[in-house]
Design a protein around this nucleic acid. Sequence first.
DNA 1: GTGAGGATCGTCT
DNA 2: GACGATCCTCACA
Length: 199
Amino acid sequence: MSLPLPQSPILTSDFFVRSPEIVARAMLGKVLVHHRKGERLSGRIIEVEAYLGLSDPASHAFRGRTSANAVLFGPPGVAYVYFIYGMHDCLNVSCLPDGEPGGVLIRALTPLEGIKTMARLRGLPADAKPQQLTGGPGKLCEAFAITRATHNGIDVTKVESSIHIEDHGRSPGTIEITPRIGISKAIEQPLRFVLKAVK
DNA sequence: GTGAGGATCGTCT
DNA sequence: GACGATCCTCACA
């Protein structure tokens, strides 16, 4: 007997209502999709970091709610895009119920669809390697044409949104857990999750 | 192949 | 006024 596949593989807000650590780990292997100008840009999520909120000094929400980080305090499953170092955008998805801050930073993807478009958006040749296209938080936003101005506050659990996350089943690989990268506070906390492909 | 340092600007103090 | 959840380039081994 085979179970019927769900009509839509899009992750719902139920998925994101849990704690960032749980959501981060569960997001590995899921597929980030951006419908852009009639084209699908997609990539499998292979690296994420969890940011806990008020109890996490490294989180943008640690100092309390501001106009910039309000998305983290809002309902789960909403894109939080922030601008960093004067030149990069980074994509997070909010977690926990409405009113509780927390989020998951998407750090790296393996490109699946629209690879040529991604390369063009990154200003790279069409045969660029995945690591060059979407191997970092700033890179993947550029490759997916995701910006703070256009995508911060978008609900990724809604079918009509241009961005969502799809579940295409379990992908082979092992999960590696390490300290987070590029931060100066709470650096010892093992909240970075990396999907290592099996060889 | 690896490591160090510069670029650049929104946000908060 | 200072800092930051990054990336790229260049120098050196």
